[in-house]
Design a protein around this nucleic acid. Structure first.
Ligand code: MN
Ligand code: MN
Ligand code: ZN
Ligand code: ZN
Lengths: 145, 145
DNA sequence: CAATGAAATAGGAATAATTCCTAATTAGGA
DNA sequence: TCCTAATTAGGAATTATTCCTATTTCATTG
C-alpha cells in the first residue's frame, strides 16, 4: 500500500521503520486515497490506535515532524490554528480551499509559481524554502446567503 | 495619529472607543510606521502597558479579534504557529516573506489575484472570503550557505 | 449634566495543543 | 545473536488562547 519509494527514502536517510511509523503512514495513505482530506495529530492517533492501541500521542507528533522534515508529509497550518497533515504525493504540488464553517478542505491545483519566481529574483538575499497559499470561504452547506 | 476613518468606522458599527482600544490602535499604528513588522498579542500588551499599565492580556486578545472582525486589523497565522497582527492600511493589500530562522517578516506586494479569480469562477458553490499567501525561507543573516 | 444599561474590562482560572522528560524498549547493522 | 543508538510510552510541563464573572465604564438619553 505505502509507496515503495517512501520506504526506500526513509531507509536511505536512516530513519528506522518502526511499526508505529508504518501505521501512521498507512493512515495517511488511506486518507490520501479517500479524497485527500488532511488530518490532525489527534485524528491520526485515533485511527492508528485501532490497529496499534499502545501508540502515544507524542509519537504521532514526533513522527509527523520527522516525515515532514523528510518531505514525505505536508504539514498544513490553517488560520483557525489547526495543524493538519497529508501524505505528499510524488511529483505533485497543490494548495487548498478551506471552509471557515466546517473546516472541509478541497484541493486546488493552481500555484502562484510566477510570483514565487519573481520574489526569488527580486529578493536575492532571501533563500526561499517553501510557501503556503490557502483560500478561505464557505462551502455550499455552510454558506448562508 | 490613528486614521480618522478607523475611528469613524468603529463608531458607525457601534464599537466603543475605550482607552484600551485606543492604545492598542496606537501601538499597531506605530508598528505600521516602523516598517510593518507584525506583532503578537503578548508584544502588543507589553507595549500598551508602558502607557496603560492595567490592561489585561484578555482585553488585548478580545480587542484584536474585534478589530480583525471589523477589517481594521489583519490577523496573520504563520506556520511556526505564531499569530501576529498588523493594522490594515486603507486600500492596500499585501503578503509576506517570513524567515524560518528569526521570524523576520518582509512585505511583498504581489498577490495571486488571477488564481483567486479562477478559483472563484470554477468553484461557484464556494463563497470565497479571504486568502493567505506566505513565502518562507531564510534571510541574509539566517541562511547558512 | 446625571442617570441608565449594555458593552467592555481585569484578573485569574480553564482549556487545548504541543513539547519535554526519562526510563524502558527496539530496529537493524555488525 | 549482540550491541547500541534511535525510538517509544506515558505523564508532566509549557504555551497560547479562551472562558468566567464581578466590576467598571462608555455613550446615549432625558
Ligand atoms: Mn491536499
Ligand atoms: Mn504586512
Ligand atoms: Zn463548510
Ligand atoms: Zn532570519
Amino acid at each position: 500500500m505505502i509507496p515503495g519509494e517512501v520506504l526506500k527514502h526513509l531507509k536511505r536517510v536512516g530513519v528506522r521503520l518502526t511499526p508505529q511509523r508504518q501505521e501512521i503512514l498507512q493512515v495517511l495513505w488511506e486518507r490520501a486515497q479517500a479524497g485527500g482530506q488532511p488530518v490532525n495529530a489527534e485524528e491520526v492517533m485515533k485511527r492508528v490506535r485501532k490497529r496499534y492501541p499502545a501508540i502515544s500521542l507524542d509519537t504521532v507528533y514526533r513522527t509527523l515532524a520527522t516525515f515532514t522534515r523528510e518531505g514525505i508529509v505536508n504539514e498544513l497550518q490553517f488560520k483557525d490554528q489547526s495543524r493538519r497533515y497529508e501524505l505528499v504525493i510524488q511529483g505533485e504540488h497543490h494548495h487548498h480551499l478551506v471552509c471557515l464553517g466546517c473546516g472541509y478542505v478541497r484541493e486546488i491545483a493552481y500555484c502562484p509559481e510566477d510570483i514565487i519566481k519573481r520574489v526569488r529574483e527580486s529578493y536575492t538575499d532571501f533563500k526561499i524554502e517553501e510557501h503556503s497559499f490557502t483560500i478561505y470561504g464557505y462551502c455550499a452547506e455552510c454558506r448562508e446567503d
